[in-house]
Amino acid sequence: MEGPLAAALAADPAVGGGYFDAYAAVGLLAVVGVLFVMVAFTANRLLRPAIWSPEKLLTYECGVDPVGEGWAHTQVRYYVYAFLYVIFAVDAIYLFPWATVFASAGYGMGTLVEMFIFLGFLAVGLLYAWKKGVLEWT
């Protein structure tokens, strides 16, 4: 490790030493969390009654007998929103590495402008979607 990288590492006090320790803790928490869920459901299994009847296992549709199967047509609009999010999220994640470096020495205005160009392209995309009426329903 040498040069700008080492400097960048040294500039960030949070980076370094406890990397594996930190994620070991996260992993341990995952174990604790899974254990919690398992213990909760095991205890629940011991406590709860189990008296099933066909009526109880029926799909609930506000009290009337269920109609058809458990699936219904839905607007494709929802899908468009999901698609828009994927595109914008890919964009948004680039903000994070940028956020950590753009104000440090040697970047400054140039990097800011680069980012603004990047954001500008996506703002145009959002504007286009808006104009095309994708973001509104009626």
């Binding site: 609930y60 458990g70 219904a72 929802y78 929103y81 999220a89 903000l95």
Partner: peptide, 27 residues
């Protein structure tokens, strides 16, 4: 997994809403 039309619709609405609002949150 509920095999219920209302649940499915609710799940899709939830997902669309969560994704739509995740973006401003991330920004």
């Amino acid at each position: 997994a509920s095999a219920n039309k209302f649940s499915l619709l609710g799940g899709l609405r939830t997902a669309a809403q969560l994704m739509s609002y995740e973006l401003p949150m991330v920004l």
